[in-house]
Amino acid sequence: MSGSLISYVVSYAGFILEAGLLVYLVGSGHAKRFWELVFYLSMSLGVGVARTYTLHYEGFASRQYGYCYWITDLMLVLAAFVLVVSFFRRACFANREMWQFVRMLLAAVIVAIAVISYFSLASHNDNFFSFFIVEFSQNLYFASLVLTTLLYLMTLKMEISDERLSMIVCGLGIEFAGPAAGLALVYLTNVGWVSAYISVYFVPLCDIGMILTWLYAISRVPGAAKVPSHRIGASPAFARGNISNF
């Protein structure tokens, strides 16, 4: 099989799987419960359509495609950040104090990334779409990976074990770790074919890995066990006699 055919198969397989998972979530009534996944998948599909459209009309070597690719990549990683935040909220459901602390931490992380990016942008505005954005995406992916790892550790410490959430977080870890490593390799080697292999094969494969993990988690893994409600039932007749009305 030729290289271009494999790249088409890999990218279209990811696209089809994403659409399939979205349809499954909506069709099986999980959409409301996993609204974050619906949001991320819709965003990812939208990004895929935008990239395909630009590639078709502007061509691979065009500057427009470069803009489109990196801006949509940024949008995707920001959507993933929203996903991580919502999972943190889910993991801190039973502990409001912890959620307040985590919320502050997440806000600090996004502000720190924005400030670092602003200063980096100021010094790299001449070659914005060559090195700066690769470095910026790599940093953002890595920050999300670190947050995902914290989230995974938090799911292990949760009072009510939620295997499904834990599995979904693992899928997200694959999605962040792969591109972060790939982008770091691109930055370090600065060789064209490494960049091409990473973006054409490795990143879509990580995407497929995440979608399959999510699909497995939603369809096969049971969710969190419900907390037994300790409501006091009506007192038996013989006990009622001992209760004073005054």
Binding site: Q138, N139, Y141, F142, L145, T149, Y152, M167, C170, G171, G173, I174, F176, A177, G178, A180, A181, A184, L185, L188, T213
Partner: peptide, 17 residues
Amino acid sequence: LILILSIAMFFFYLQTI
């Protein structure tokens, strides 16, 4: 550093799954 840690985390998540 990001490369090394990301590769390690990639295999960690793969093994966990």
